[in-house]
């Protein structure tokens, strides 16, 4: 049984439909990518899955729980680690304070001291959030998402604000998360990122899934070691914004 199952998800805002019709499922242990241009409805879709927004239509099951039910949602919060697209911590809160604080919110947290070591924040443990670099803030937000020992981690546009070097470093970190048996849902608009990291991807455009597949190994000289399951027009790689291949 898939860990996450989404069928015919629909979400409307006051004057537009953000998600028309989205269906996909995520198996335990995979890195599942949600790829698409800005404004395609990626974030809205994952926020409905996380229970941060209430869906207007369709069905969602996360580990057998329905995020619309309050009781299920409380349970879901314990086992889903969320890194939001735009969220900060109080600027004067220190790295260790944030991790220690958030670890008290969960029933069965990991040792936050280990997280500080694992995520390369040892030298910055006593630094305030506001004084960290973008890459360090990002690493702290990943560590915070993992403090509750989640089964699923959701990363939304994790690397968008980072320079290419920091982005590559973050990719290694995401692979490290998967090695800890955490299923990863990754939202991105970088084709390269999805191709490098994801086992499978859903491409979303204008609130609909336009392609759902294993990322193919089409890119000439690509570093990806994954074998190609299907072939796609090469224009996908030349212009990095995904287009519907239909």
């Amino acid at each position: 049984m898939p860990l996450i199952e989404v069928s015919n998800l629909r979400k409307e805002y006051r004057n537009h439909v953000a998600v028309q019709d989205v269906s996909f499922s995520v198996e335990e242990g995979e890195i599942f990518g949600i790829l698409g241009p800005n404004g395609a409805g990626k974030t809205t879709a994952v926020e409905c899955i996380e229970g941060m927004r209430k869906r207007d239509g369709g069905e969602i099951s996360v580990m057998g729980l329905d995020p619309l039910k309050d009781k299920d949602l409380a349970e879901l919060r314990e086992s889903i680690g969320i890194q939001l697209q735009q969220s900060e911590l109080p600027p004067k809160m220190k790295v260790w304070e944030a991790l220690e604080l958030y670890s008290t919110f969960y029933r069965d947290p990991v040792d936050w001291r280990e997280l500080i070591k694992d995520w390369g924040l040892s030298g910055k443990a006593d630094t305030a959030y506001g004084s960290l670099s973008g890459g360090q803030q990002q690493r702290l937000s990943i560590a915070l998402a993992l403090v509750g020992k989640p089964r699923i981690a959701v990363f939304d546009e994790l690397t968008t604000a980072l320079d290419p070097h920091a982005r590559r470093e973050t990719w290694k970190l995401i692979e490290k998360v998967r090695e800890q048996d955490v299923t990863v849902l990754l939202v991105t608009h970088f084709m390269e990122e999805a191709e490098r990291l994801c086992d499978r991807i859903a491409i979303i455009e204008s609130g609909r899934v336009v392609a759902l597949d294993t990322p193919p190994d089409w890119c000439p000289g690509s570093m990806s070691s994954r074998s190609s399951a299907s072939s796609r027009p090469s224009r996908w790689t030349t212009n990095c914004s995904p287009r519907c291949p239909r």
């Binding site: 969220s87 911590l89 915070l144």
Partner: peptide
């Protein structure tokens, strides 16, 4: 400020 910076939202993503 807590609302504007998403600090409340970050907390909403936790069990508290």
């Amino acid at each position: 400020t807590y609302r504007e910076k998403g600090i409340l939202r970050r907390m909403a993503a936790s069990p508290i």
